[in-house]
């Protein structure tokens, strides 16, 4: 499938800031399920900083944006050719060992309810257990936009029984780790058809490390494994660690003034 992405992130500051520094994880992963045809990231007035590939295989690019600034616009535009590998991550070079992803973070910390959910899942082998865990999360946390916030933990989302893809991914990661399966958060894009609302095109799911297969993606939000509709960008322990953009604004005004954020993402199936 040929997917094109338009992703615009707009930061607005009520009072101009002296400048900003950002770290971007915005380049598609290099793996067998996807091939980049073209891809550009632009930052209005930005200066490119250090660029490297991290131990998890993600392309990281630093940026500094000199001020004074009232607005920062980050534009991502590109086209990727994808194939369906049933969620299995192949041909992806990385140094971090799977065992490193057995560690909790505040967003994915266990709770009694998460432990119960994890313990109830049945599976003859690791792969079927992984499917069962993903299914359990889909059943336990309903997709309700606006029910949770960026800082909501897996435990809180489960207690509420509602959340978005971020919460479902966090809950699956927590459950997998409780069953001693290394698990991580994946940020990316999803082509959900031409009728879906635009904010849904930025997506998140989880990868579980299944012995013999390697990393396998599970998307509890859509009760499936990533296929040709998915573009993988990067991974981390949780949403914060795998974020597209991490940044801070500089200067006294940054501490006092308000800031607003607007994100628009559109993924189209391009004409062949």
């Amino acid at each position: 499938m040929r997917l094109s992405v338009d992703h615009v992130t707009r930061y607005r500051f009520d009072r101009p800031v002296r400048g900003a520094v950002q770290s971007h994880r915005l380049m598609p992963s290099e793996c067998h399920s996807q091939r980049v045809l073209d891809w550009q990231v632009e930052v209005t007035g930005g200066i490119r900083g250090g660029r490297f590939r991290d131990g998890a295989g993600d392309r990281i690019q630093g940026w500094t944006i000199p001020g004074p600034l009232a607005e920062i616009v980050v534009t991502v535009q590109g086209t990727v050719e994808t194939v369906d590998l049933a969620g299995v991550l192949r041909g992806h070079r990385e140094t971090v060992v799977p065992d490193a992803y057995l560690r909790d973070t505040p967003l994915t910390a266990a709770s009694v309810a998460l432990a119960d959910l994890a313990a109830a899942a049945q599976g003859g082998d690791m792969l079927s257990l992984a499917h069962a865990l993903s299914g359990a999360v889909t059943a336990a946390i309903a997709y309700v936009p606006g029910a949770t916030e960026a800082q909501t933990t897996a435990a809180e989302a489960l207690a509420k029984g509602e959340g978005v893809c971020q919460d479902q991914a966090h809950a699956l990661i927590a459950c997998a780790r409780l069953r001693a399966i290394p698990a991580r958060y994946v940020s990316g894009y999803l082509f959900a058809g031409s009728t879906s609302p635009p904010q849904q095109a930025a997506h998140a799911w989880a990868e579980l490390h299944v012995a013999g297969l390697g990393w396998v993606g599970f998307d509890p939000a859509n009760a499936c494994c990533p296929d040709a509709r998915y573009i993988r960008i990067g991974s981390g322990f949780d949403a914060q660690d795998a974020a597209f953009i991490r940044g801070v604004a500089r200067g006294a005004a940054a501490a006092e003034g308000g800031e607003s954020l607007e994100v628009a993402v559109a993924v189209h199936a391009a004409e062949q």
Binding site: G55, A56, T95, V97, D99, R103
Partner: peptide, 16 residues
């Protein structure tokens, strides 16, 4: 476990 689940192990510098 002692290495990779150690709080002081920084995934961010793996491979560097």
């Amino acid at each position: 476990r002692l290495v990779y689940q150690n709080e002081a192990y920084e995934k961010a510098v793996a491979g560097f």
